[in-house]
Amino acid sequence: MSQKLIEIKNKAKEYFSKNELNADHETAITLFISGVKSANVLILSKIEIQPVDWHAYKYMHAQYFKDLQLFSLLNRSTNWSYNPYIYYQLSSQTFNLWGTSNLNTYILGAFDLDAKFFRYLSLSHAFKTEIRFIPLFPSDLSLDTPFLSALYDVEVQNQREIQTQISMLKNIEVPSLTVEQKEEIVRNERQVVADSYVDFLKFLITI
């Protein structure tokens, strides 16, 4: 974990120890997560129309529908803000994330066992592991609200879903990549997601 990510997380923890979640926070968090989940859903949707190894298909198919379900559940649970600035800011941040993570490159064309697929797996692993909000709230905070319980479900489900990414990242043979190159890709994609998350948290604690 980078120093700046640790620092901003600590600031966010301090912030949420003093400030209760309001509609602006909920809206921002939901839009940020939705941006990530909708991108993953969009990318995974293509496995429904291309030939894929059955074992891999089974897990990616499950992730596709689970992400869709959680994305809609979170949207339904959110107290939406009336503040247009939140929507403007999140549109801008989501747009930047699409740019820095090259999300568009994974949407077109079929998946193949190549460096691009490995990069997608690394990126989606980072999405599901780097972006966590429950740890930012006090440990004794009750999660018994629609939004917090949905947010908790998203994080717990992310931990289950990454088994797909973990299994493939560890086991698939990509002839064009050495182990060092694989490590490098994983590090880079994590950094991209972490940077985006840091930017988002900086905004979140100024609301």
């Binding site: 692993h125 592991t129 966590r132 429950i134 740890p135 440990s139 004794d140 931990q159 990454i162 973990i166």
Partner: peptide, 17 residues
């Protein structure tokens, strides 16, 4: 329950895995 939540908050599943 608080200690369990703290453990969830302070750890990442894939790291422990």
């Amino acid at each position: 329950p608080i200690a369990i939540r703290e453990s969830f908050n302070n750890n990442d599943l894939y790291g422990i895995q």
